[in-house]
Design a protein around this nucleic acid. Structure first.
Lengths: 211, 211
DNA sequence: ATGAAATTAGACTGATCGGTCTATTTTTGA
DNA sequence: TCAAAAATAGACCGATCAGTCTAATTTCAT
């Protein structure tokens, strides 16, 4: 096996902050508690991140990168139709919900806790959200939906609903329900004739509901 | 016109707290700011509510009552089929989103900002959520769906997705998208033969998409 | 009109917060 | 091996927080 390289204070802080910010809230989590959780000295936080605010920004970056990896690496690696790739996203989300340290989405937490009219939190969350929706949009375009914009908005709404439902109920089955709802949306979607993919192929999905 | 009865300090505090808790976050909103916004003396908050925590509880109560009024008064007053009542809920939600002081759902804010494993916030939000879902479930049962539980979970997820999407994007059209997604779900739902309502009636809904 | 009750203004407290500073110990690379 | 860099422990600071207290003022029922 590879050498179990000890985690750097930088990484330990990032992991502790991500968990505590989600589990207990951002404002409710004091610097001191993050330091205890990370097992790191007070000064290390400020040499590496400069402020609690910058630490939060770093946490938001890592969460966004999780989504980017799903869309840019994990989903393209699947050998299946675009429609099935869309549905496979919900399986990735389910794995996320199943982690023992899942306590909701840090983006939702951050927006909920901060000023909603303006501010860097809103800007940052909006920017990353747009980038994620763009990737989802590319997937929907690829699938040949006739009204891709509406489909993307429906799916995005279902994904956000799944995240909130999983956070509130602490039950990962929200991802499965979300997948079922997404299948309903796709089943009601009209498709362009050009692509080989037909509405029949979407109807066929029903038989391959996973796990 | 009726006498414009001056608002009591109690009510002014409740309204100011609700807006500020949603607009800027609960922890981020100090007592002093609520008092300024309400135009009320510091002591009045403590004679009427006893603590910031109790004020938050009162705000959560009023938000829950909004939902109860929708389900217990507004929707039953509509002369239409249960399926159409379900869809009409999304119109009520849209009116909610359109209010200029809509900044998300205080329940989501509260859960997001507090400990997610335990605590009174989680308990209170869970209890009220169950009561709201129960009412939605009664509506779905009434409509004669073959698998009402799954339908309720799909619809609940779509509703929560709409709330988050509207909060993040500050756009009330999320309610309309949610309604379209809900129509897809209902269109894919199997119905009991006993009731007069048939899948044909659900298909007919398409032509009456409002606004 | 009047007295009790409600409301107000604002100083004040103890606790906690994010952040700084210093001195000591540990780690690391040549 | 040994000096430089990184990380540690923990005291400390000013600001802000929720909540208390007192005294003056307004409201309102009789």
């Amino acid at each position: 096996m590879t050498k179990t390289a000890r985690k750097s204070p930088e990484e330990k802080l990032l992991l502790a902050a991500r968990r505590l910010f989600c589990q207990a809230g951002i404002h409710a989590t004091g610097i001191t508690r993050i330091l205890e959780e990370a097992g790191v000295a007070r000064q290390s936080l400020y040499t590496h991140y400069g402020s609690k605010e910058n630490l939060l920004k770093a946490v938001l970056d890592t969460e966004a990168n999780m989504w980017f990896q799903w869309f840019d690496l994990d989903l393209p690696a699947l050998k299946c139709s675009p429609s099935q790739r869309i549905l496979a996203l919900f399986d990735l989300i389910e794995k996320w919900f199943e982690k023992e340290d899942f306590f909701g989405c840090i983006f939702v937490n951050a927006v909920a806790e901060h000023e909603k009219d303006s501010g860097w939190v809103r800007d940052m969350a909006g920017t990353y959200r747009d980038q994620i929706i763009d990737r989802l949009g590319a997937l929907v375009m690829e699938s040949g939906a006739r009204n891709p914009d509406v489909v993307v908005q429906k799916l995005g709404l279902i994904i956000e609903g799944a995240i909130i439902t999983a956070m509130v109920t602490q039950n990962s089955k929200a991802a499965h329900i979300a997948r079922l709802a997404a299948e309903d949306v796709l089943r009601c979607t009209e498709w362009l004739p050009s692509k080989a993919e037909t509405s029949a192929s979407v109807a066929a999905m029903e038989s391959m509901e996973s796990t």
